[in-house]
Design a protein around this nucleic acid. Structure first.
Length: 228
DNA sequence: ATGCCGATGTCCT
DNA sequence: GGACATCGGCATC
């Protein structure tokens, strides 16, 4: 599978697009103990969905690690286990999708081994492939920074819904791949996670990772130069 | 630029 | 009944 060459924005040079064949991340990538490290390593990878033979994709530019039962911000904190979060306990390499605020479908990657409910929330992508389709799904007429920015928005663009929770990330429905792009460590910034103020001291942990200066990172307010 | 607000499924008290 | 891993629109400054 190849990626298209056209840039997302003609007027913004940010991440170079690669055209070499892309390689799915395998089970061993997800089945590791350090979820924080995995969250960091997912930056720069490509998130792909296939629907009716149409592929849509984007480069991951923002992630958050949720460190299992000891993490107050995690759905699995203190061993919490419900029908909703059951997939977090099912082993590495599955999608965990849940509904947030009754409206937004948030996409996570389950990591670590069975019964260790680690997950990485994917918070933003730079749209790459199938932009027309993503615009249609999102109800937007023109591309701007919001298309893949924020966990609710990227799920909408890629057509990821709660019905996909439990989907194997080694399948073609949803997967993450390496297209050869190598992100310099100096481009990675760690910050506290968004929207987890309820988590006490855990809200301060540097478990959110962003690609420095990416225009696609989620933010509460538009930055100057947005729009148009 | 900042802040409020509504939408609303699932979990928790 | 309240909180929640959100978002966009609108009012106000």
């Amino acid at each position: 599978m190849n990626l298209p060459v056209q840039p997302t924005f003609k007027h913004i040079k940010f991440l170079r697009l690669y055209t070499m064949a892309i390689i799915k991340l395998d089970h061993d990538f997800y089945d590791r103990k350090d979820v924080v490290k995995i969250a960091r390593q997912l930056l720069g990878k490509i998130l792909v969905t296939n629907r009716d033979g149409i592929a849509t994709s984007g480069r991951i530019v923002e992630t958050e690690a949720y460190n299992g039962i000891i993490d107050r911000a995690s759905h699995a904190w203190n061993g919490r286990r419900t029908a909703r979060n059951e997939v977090m306990y099912g082993g590495a390499g599955a999608a965990y999708v849940y509904l947030c605020y009754g409206i937004h479908h948030l996409f996570n990657v389950v990591t670590n081994s069975r019964n260790i409910p680690h997950a990485v929330l994917i918070r933003a992508i730079e749209p790459l492939q199938g932009i027309d389709v993503m615009l249609q799904r999102s109800g937007k007429k023109k591309i701007d920074h919001s298309l893949g920015s924020g966990p609710g928005n990227l799920s909408k663009a890629l057509d990821i819904i709660t019905a996909h929770s439990g989907t194997d990330l080694l399948s073609d429905k949803i997967f993450i791949a390496d297209d050869g792009y190598r992100l310099p460590q100096s481009r990675i910034i760690a910050t506290p996670r968004i929207g987890v103020d309820y988590a006490g001291e855990d809200a301060l942990l540097p478990y959110r990772f962003i690609i420095k200066d990416s225009p696609y990172i989620s933010r509460k307010k538009p930055r100057p130069g947005d729009g148009k």
